[in-house]
């Protein structure tokens, strides 16, 4: 029996379980990042009194190293806010808010790049400001930001390898556990690296293909 078979193939269920946790965390963190980034961006642009707070949060989320962010959300937030209750949730939130800081800035650039005339054309046919935002500004912003959004997803996947420090049992956690059981890191870690590379590659490729196709269709320039 080769090492590959013993250490990797026979442990495939453990690794798969870890991988599914990784996917789950990344998807939830991604949703938090996109929604949170848009909210931060909107507050920053359109809610005058809260603008300083939004700027502070954006800068804070972007500047904090992910390791510190994970520890902080996992151990400090529950003391201050009484939330999040699980390490899994803490991992999702920490990864999500960091990317939300980056996406907030991407969205702001996207919104500011839309010619004022596009909005005025909406007002001139009687659309309300929320309608203009939802129907004219938001779709164009998302299209223009698509490459950055996809990129943030890959950042989240890579950062997610650190959630094991707060005991979340993701792919990296399971791989490290196997390593400590067998003391045979070569095969396990190589395969783990391969899984991450494959995951990131597929996501990037799918995202880029989709974004290019949409932009070609609408004749929009790449951002």
């Amino acid at each position: 029996m080769s090492n590959w078979e013993r250490l990797v193939w026979n442990q495939r269920e453990v690794l798969l379980k870890g991988f599914l946790v990784t996917v789950e965390i990344c998807l939830i963190a991604f949703a938090i990042a996109v929604v949170g980034g848009m909210l931060l961006c909107l507050v920053r642009l359109y809610v005058k009194p809260l603008k300083p707070l939004a700027v502070l949060l954006i800068e804070f989320f972007r500047a904090t190293p992910i390791f510190v962010q994970l520890m902080w959300v996992a151990y400090v937030w529950p003391e201050i806010f009484g939330w999040p209750g699980t390490f899994f949730a803490a991992g999702c939130v920490a990864l999500g808010v960091q990317s939300s800081g980056y996406l907030a800035e991407t969205f702001r650039a996207g919104i500011e790049a839309i010619p004022r005339g596009h909005r005025e054309a909406g007002y001139s046919v009687g659309m309300s400001p929320p309608q203009v935002f939802r129907r004219i500004v938001l779709p164009q912003t998302l299209l223009a930001s698509a490459p950055s959004i996809v990129n943030q997803f890959t950042v989240i996947v890579k950062s997610s390898t650190l959630v094991s420090v707060i005991t979340v049992q993701d792919l990296m956690f399971q791989a490290l556990k196997l390593v400590t059981v067998w003391y045979e890191p070569i095969e396990i870690l190589t395969v783990t690296a391969g899984i991450y590379i494959g995951f990131v590659f597929l996501v990037s490729l799918a995202g880029k293909t989709l974004a290019d196709r949409l932009r070609l269709r609408y004749g929009l320039a790449a951002a």
Binding site: P115, G117, E120, A121, S124, V125, P139, Q140, L143, Y218
Partner: peptide, 15 residues
């Protein structure tokens, strides 16, 4: 909405 406006820059919505 009772006044139609046509702009120099067209301002069509590209999406």
């Amino acid at each position: 909405r009772d006044l139609g406006m046509v702009f120099q820059q067209f301002n069509l919505w590209p999406h």
